[in-house]
Design a protein around this nucleic acid. Sequence first.
DNA 1: GTGAAAGCGCTAACAC
DNA 2: GTGTTAGCGCTTTCAC
Lengths: 345, 345
Amino acid sequence: MAYDKGNFRNVTIKDVAKRAEVSIATVSRILNGKDRVSPLLAERVLLATKELQYQPNDVARALKIKESRSIGLIIPDIENPFFPALVRGVQDAAKIHNYAVILCNTDGKTEEEKKYIQFLYSKRVDGIAFTESVDNKKNIALLDSLGIPVVLLDRRVEGMKASGVSTDNRLGAFMATKHLIERGKRRIAFISGSPKLSSGAERASGYQDALLSYNIQYDKKLAFIGAFTYESGYAAVENLLLSRYQFDAIFASNDIMAIGAIECLNQYGIRVPEDVAVVGFDDIRLATWYKPLLTTIRQPVYEMGQYAIKLLVEHITGERSSPYEKIFVPELMIRQSSGGLEESK
Amino acid sequence: MAYDKGNFRNVTIKDVAKRAEVSIATVSRILNGKDRVSPLLAERVLLATKELQYQPNDVARALKIKESRSIGLIIPDIENPFFPALVRGVQDAAKIHNYAVILCNTDGKTEEEKKYIQFLYSKRVDGIAFTESVDNKKNIALLDSLGIPVVLLDRRVEGMKASGVSTDNRLGAFMATKHLIERGKRRIAFISGSPKLSSGAERASGYQDALLSYNIQYDKKLAFIGAFTYESGYAAVENLLLSRYQFDAIFASNDIMAIGAIECLNQYGIRVPEDVAVVGFDDIRLATWYKPLLTTIRQPVYEMGQYAIKLLVEHITGERSSPYEKIFVPELMIRQSSGGLEESK
DNA sequence: GTGAAAGCGCTAACAC
DNA sequence: GTGTTAGCGCTTTCAC
């Protein structure tokens, strides 16, 4: 009874019809701009809606036309600095198409994802934008069985039926590693994101490919598995340091791990970039606020969010039927943490 | 027709009733745990829902019971580092009560706020959590006329009818300023947030009160009006520097302005905290990643978001009828930018 | 305890 | 063009 309380009167299409002395069908027609209606009645109806402050009830409309004009957005955690820009891109695009976006944080738990999918389904959302936590086809299959359009954000799933938007992670990692090599680094440590995520795995392979193409032996003692978190970046470097294994650079699979890494280096009195050069991935806002300014691979996160909704809406409307994969091109942002723009040898 | 496509069959309560050989009323009763029903029928119905993978249609339910189990969350911008934690608090609390949260970014524009309020109303949300951009009673009045429960986030409105949750901004600003004074600072510049916001105005008054209680003359040449943005913090200091007016500390009304301020100081070769001590407000995550670590006033942002939903739900259910104002107590986080923990004179 | 039926507010045939 | 009416999927009287 939330919106029916107090002295507030819930105005329905019936009230408008009565006031304008027409049928409810006519009111509906006029408000939806379908069919032709006489200007005379249109005017009367419009006046009545104003006078009564009528706001159509979208719940009833949704039930009738089987279209809720809302979409679900499932992400791991809005507090992770990667996501705000993505979410904003999604919301801005959704707004243009008049969709409400329902935000869901899963903390990367498959079980939570499943719950939210069912929750969103019971709300009969028209589509879901989904940043999966693990490359787990179960939830994608669930979505598929529910028959609800999906677009995967920042993830790729083998042979998936859903559309997806992502950045070329392999290329980005290749560029980052290449950049370090070109600065004369040879012992480049790598902090991976979760290899279960496509983004994690692809970045790892980009790193290896770059080494290969410069004839540098891949050394697994220099490779660490992180979890895309500050703490895991810090821990990786601490382990590396304790191993006393030599290294002159670090490529971290995302910016917060890179920052965690630098923090740890600093803690041990190692200077960045003088002693060790560091490159991150994502180009979150913090990358340009942190000291040293972080050299990183930029992903157009906001645009990815926007594009995802563009695709999703196309699927919802039926404009597009087969899955499409949009892959954005990453960009190397050279800043202080890798030694800046000046040449080195 | 989004969820009715392909080979997917939309299962309704009718299908379940048929399969379990009972009436739809019985199915409804069992699923909602109202009334008493015979265990026999209950079992049959539950089995049928499993077999058919029935998921109740919340849209229909919402129409019938006039309760959409969704709430709107209106904020200026999720990309502003203050908001992710707030949003997360809101969402986590909403989840517990089984509400969907619809996210809306207004960029602080009154007109956008109004549009979103109407949008949310047409969706018949059960309540709205609202971080107003300007102390504009119009939108609050609109909300009120729609009869929809509201709780104001991080804002206070004079004589408002809505509940609100905020931090004691005056006290926080007082603590920040006092801290600087106790470190021997006397010429403390102040960068205000928008004075049109309660948070902005209250922090300004806390700053002034602290000066007063230490018999330091308030000097308006040291006071600048910012906009809670990085750029405005930077610009304020640049103006201050150009004025060649003496100062030995800065209290900025939020952390990103403080960081903007420090960036500008650095740009001009001024060291923090050696030459100028700086204190911020909010304690966003960045405050502990930035160098120097930022001394700041901590607001329990996540908890504020949670509490807001607690209040909102109480209003929705009718458990609470008159507005309540929850004010959290701020906490001084002493870090490097003000000179750290060591004493100074 | 259970079923029949009304009705939430809307759209879309279908008649006229 | 416009009105009448069925019905979207559910909850809830009201009978029995």
